[in-house]
C-alpha cells in the first residue's frame, strides 16, 4: 500500500471464523468488533487505553481494542470473549468467578477474564501480588477486586 487510503479491505480471522471487511481506517478494533461484527462482549469504557474493558486477544496476546485500528488487525487472528467462552478455555475461570461472585455489573468482566487467562498461561502459580499486578490495568468499580483475585488464585491452585 503506497497511497494513503480512507478505507481498507482486509481479511482476518475472528473467533476462528474468516472475516472479510472493508473498514474506514479511523475505526478502532473494538468498535469494529462490536458494531460491524456484533461481538458486543468486548466493552468500551474509556477509549484511551486506561480502563482495560476493551481488551481482546490479537495473535495470542491481550491488547487494548481501543488502541489499535481495525485495519491493523488485517491478517491477524482475533479472539474475543465470545470465542474464548465457546472454546471452553475460560471455563475454570468463569466457574470460579461465578462461585465467588467476582463480578457485579459485569462490564469489566470479559476483559478481566481474558487478562487473567493470559496471566495463567505465562505463570501457572502466580502469587496474590502477581495476580493484582497483572490485573492492575483493568478497572473494576464494583467488586473491590478481592473476589477477582481469589477466583484467579483458586484456578491457579494457589492458597487463597
Amino acid at each position: 500500500m503506497t497511497e494513503p487510503s480512507k478505507t481498507v479491505q482486509m481479511a482476518l480471522r475472528v473467533n476462528r471464523e474468516s472475516v472479510e471487511a472493508t473498514v474506514p481506517v479511523r475505526r478502532n478494533l473494538v468498535d469494529f468488533l462490536r458494531d460491524d461484527l456484533g461481538l458486543t462482549g468486548s466493552h468500551v469504557g474509556c477509549e484511551h487505553g486506561v480502563c482495560g474493558a476493551c481488551t481482546v486477544v490479537v495473535d495470542g496476546a491481550i491488547m487494548r481494542g481501543c488502541l489499535m485500528l481495525a485495519v491493523q488487525a488485517d491478517g491477524c487472528e482475533i479472539e474475543t470473549i465470545e470465542g474464548a467462552d465457546q472454546s471452553g478455555r475460560l471455563a475454570a475461570l468463569q466457574a470460579a468467578f461465578h462461585r465467588r461472585n467476582a463480578l457485579q455489573c459485569g462490564f469489566c468482566t470479559p476483559a478481566m477474564l481474558l487478562t487473567a487467562a493470559a496471566l495463567l498461561e505465562q505463570n501457572s502459580k502466580p502469587s496474590r501480588d502477581e495476580i493484582r499486578d497483572y490485573l492492575s490495568g483493568n478497572f473494576c468499580r464494583c467488586t473491590g477486586y478481592q473476589e477477582i483475585v481469589d477466583a484467579v488464585a483458586e484456578v491457579a491452585g494457589a492458597d487463597t
Partner: peptide
C-alpha cells in the same frame, strides 16, 4: 471520543516507507 477522519498508509518495506515519508 472517536478519532477524526484521516488516511492510512501501510508501507511494506523501509525503502517504501522513507520514500513515502519524503512525500507526505
Amino acid at each position: 471520543m472517536k478519532a477524526p477522519d484521516f488516511a492510512y498508509l501501510r508501507p511494506n518495506t523501509l525503502e517504501e516507507a522513507v520514500a513515502a515519508l519524503g512525500r507526505f
